[in-house]
Design a protein around this nucleic acid. Structure first.
Lengths: 247, 247
DNA sequence: ATCACCTGTTAGCCAAGACTAACAAAACCA
DNA sequence: TGGTTTTGTTAGTCTTGGCTAACAGGTGAT
């Protein structure tokens, strides 16, 4: 048995798979592990040898595999992170179950102890504290339902077009050349939202309007050293804080 | 130029590094990339060749490296995820800046479009909506400050030991053998909290008390097929919903 | 009893991505 | 101009973690 410095994600995944298999099917065999991880059985054998060398599993050729106490602890650590992330994605962010699973599965290997600690505090908060539960409801009603305007939150000024400007949010399409503005919100869904977010238009970012095409059909922005071109529709979906006015 | 199926995390990191370098230092050289990524220069050259083959960077031997428009988009996508995650970890979960950076850096490669979409909605919510801002305040005051009891939230019943039981939360140490209970909250900090969370005691989990040592100094639990042993102190820190009573 | 089948192992291959050591090209001085 | 230093590239090695193909060991059916 050799001392571990840091388990690779692949080995953590194997360990987790074994954990789930013994939990549900009582025993873990090479075949099952291969199926669960979508790899060939021939790839499993050497991984088992490595895990056995690390003292995390008991593995004798052609026999059932199971976890040592240390392997159990290690696997449990990973599974806990997986659970915490999955719950956050499903219950708080409300992303589709399958995507939530996928994201959690990939991220579970790199969440720090501190991240885990605080993430779980957050989950505890929205589950246990009436304030937390209420505010989560507001988030879901107000923000996730934006594409169903009639369902959207009455309290939140960002959801009400008339009140938006009072709260210092105007579409980027209304901004003059040369002004620097602060992105507040992306009022778009689906592919267009993805495009704008991927382009770096996150709330809190500062952008400068560099050029506006005649007819305001195209907007060239500068953002931290790079230029970015938006269509009129895109610019209308980017809500920003209006530039300061010197009174 | 070859078509990309899916960029590896390593290549995404190189791309991101180049992006940040041209943004701040105007140019990216092999030396700088190697330093930024803590690898040897000899590892950078082949990575640059791969990125150039994918049409993401412009790279001529011994010349400055820069991003093609496509590379810029690709890098920006990764950087946006990095930013969104960092902000969430820093401003919402309030984990230390350095840890936040580290976690974001590792997770940025595996956040789905949907996860990104909803994560940013959440950030928009707590930044723009008065309700959201309040949510965050309550969370920070009530939950993160738990170890300073005088600062803890007055509204939240979980923070007030007297009221906790009314809200169906009692320490696991008070539970009888044989009972199945639901974990509500881990009332511990630091290493003990980490240990309990890593052991899978997350809010929402169901555990059964299998055995209690004389003097209630040790508690053996069963959780989804595995046994788990807690000390008395640990059991006192696990707040659970009391078992149903048949009236 | 033997043949076929299922499962697991071995051997040998490959690609990614790191490393060192040695070499080549530029740049920097004197 | 020529030597030194810095910077980049090449060649060769290693580990991880996949793959296929071939083989081995058990189980079961005829």
């Amino acid at each position: 048995m050799i001392e571990a410095e840091r388990l690779s994600s692949a080995l953590e995944d194997y360990l987790e798979t074994i954990y789930e298999l013994v939990r549900h099917q009582k025993v873990a065999r090479v075949r099952d592990i291969a199926r669960a991880r979508s790899v060939r059985a021939a790839s499993v054998t050497p991984a088992m040898r490595r895990l056995a060398d690390l003292g995390l599993i008991r593995y004798e050729k052609r026999e059932y595999i199971d976890l040592t106490p240390q392997g159990q602890r290690e696997a449990q650590r990973v599974v806990s992170r997986h659970q915490a992330l999955t719950r956050f994605f499903k219950n708080v962010l409300k992303i589709p179950v399958k995507t939530a699973e996928g994201d959690a599965c990939a991220m579970e290997h790199s969440l720090s102890a501190e991240g885990m600690d605080h993430l779980v505090r957050f989950i505890e908060f929205v589950h246990n504290c009436p304030e937390g539960a209420r505010l989560l409801d507001v988030f879901h009603a107000c923000v996730l339902a934006q594409h169903q305007p009639e369902a959207s939150c009455q309290r939140c000024p960002m959801g009400q077009p008339g009140k938006a400007e009072e709260h210092r949010a105007v579409p980027l399409s209304a901004i003059d050349v040369g002004a620097q503005v602060l992105v507040r919100r992306i009022a778009a869904d689906g592919a267009m939202r993805d495009r704008l977010l991927d382009a770096g238009l996150l709330p809190g970012e500062i952008v400068e309007v560099v050029r506006v095409a005649p007819g305001r059909v195209r907007f060239d922005l500068r953002r931290g050293g790079f230029e970015l071109r938006l269509t009129g529709d895109e610019a209308r979906a980017v809500l920003v804080a209006p530039p300061e006015r010197n009174p």
